[in-house]
């Protein structure tokens, strides 16, 4: 082996172009894992949250336990949450996904429920008067009107999930968090900074993407605003 070159990698600088070009594959793999973990968990969270919120809306007695349990889950720190799931899932990606699903549930259920509760009683009665059954009322009137509030919850849940995935590094499935964890142990500044910046970029991009989807889904809110 020849003498190490005197580049930013050898000098262990924070910002390093050589790091980007030489480790692009590692970075790409970490970003893909990060996106997969986030997307899968938020999607599962959404699939569970919608029926829970609808149930809490429909039956008054269901609201308190649903909100109470999800709030308690949200209070548990992420490291403890992943650790509590260790006996169930072992060292696997499922730990991270299950933990993130539980966190997103709180935000999603609360926001969807708020959206459903904000549907004006007049609107509901008008739909009933037009002969809408309970199912059609829910699918065609109540859920669409709850979309803006639900999307606000989805955006917060997604941004939080992007940030929390990094903690998954403790079980080896942390996306960019793995690079941060490894970079911490080897004092590799460029890797830690690059991975951290990419996390924030992913969070902001996901937030903007969801904002765009929300605009497409709710054309009527734009009509009012303009």
């Amino acid at each position: 082996m020849t003498a190490p070159p005197d580049d930013c990698l050898a000098r262990n600088e924070w910002i390093c172009g050589a790091y980007l070009s030489s480790r692009s594959q590692i970075l790409w793999d970490a970003v893909v894992q990060h996106l997969q973990l986030t997307a899968v968990s938020v999607a599962i969270g959404l699939v569970i949250a919608v029926p829970l919120a609808v149930a809490a809306r429909r039956w008054r007695w269901a609201a308190a336990p649903v909100l109470g349990v999800t709030t308690i889950l949200y209070t548990i720190p992420s490291l403890a949450m992943f650790s509590l799931l260790l006996p169930v899932y072992g060292l696997s990606a499922s730990i991270v996904i299950a933990g993130l699903v539980l966190y997103s549930l709180t935000l999603l259920v609360r926001n969807i429920l708020a959206g459903l509760r904000a549907v004006p009683e007049d609107t509901r009665q008008a739909a009933r008067g037009m002969g809408y059954g309970p199912v059609r009322l829910l699918l065609a009137v109540e859920l669409p009107l709850a979309v803006p509030a639900a999307m606000a919850g989805l955006r917060i849940a997604t941004v939080s999930a992007v940030s929390l995935v990094t903690v998954g590094a403790i079980v080896g499935y942390g996306g960019l968090g793995n690079l941060i964890y490894a970079g911490m142990n080897t004092y590799f500044k460029a890797q830690v900074l690059t991975a951290s910046v990419l996390c924030v970029v992913i969070a902001v991009a996901a937030d903007l993407l969801l904002l765009g989807i929300q605009r497409l889904l709710t054309p009527w809110t734009r009509a009012v605003a303009s």
């Binding site: 970079g183 996390c199 969070a203």
Partner: peptide
């Protein structure tokens, strides 16, 4: 608050450590 949510706590801890 929104900015605080987007920045991973773990990343900040490690960045400060280095």
């Amino acid at each position: 608050s929104n900015v605080g949510r987007a920045v991973p706590t773990f990343a900040v801890l490690v960045l400060l450590l280095l």
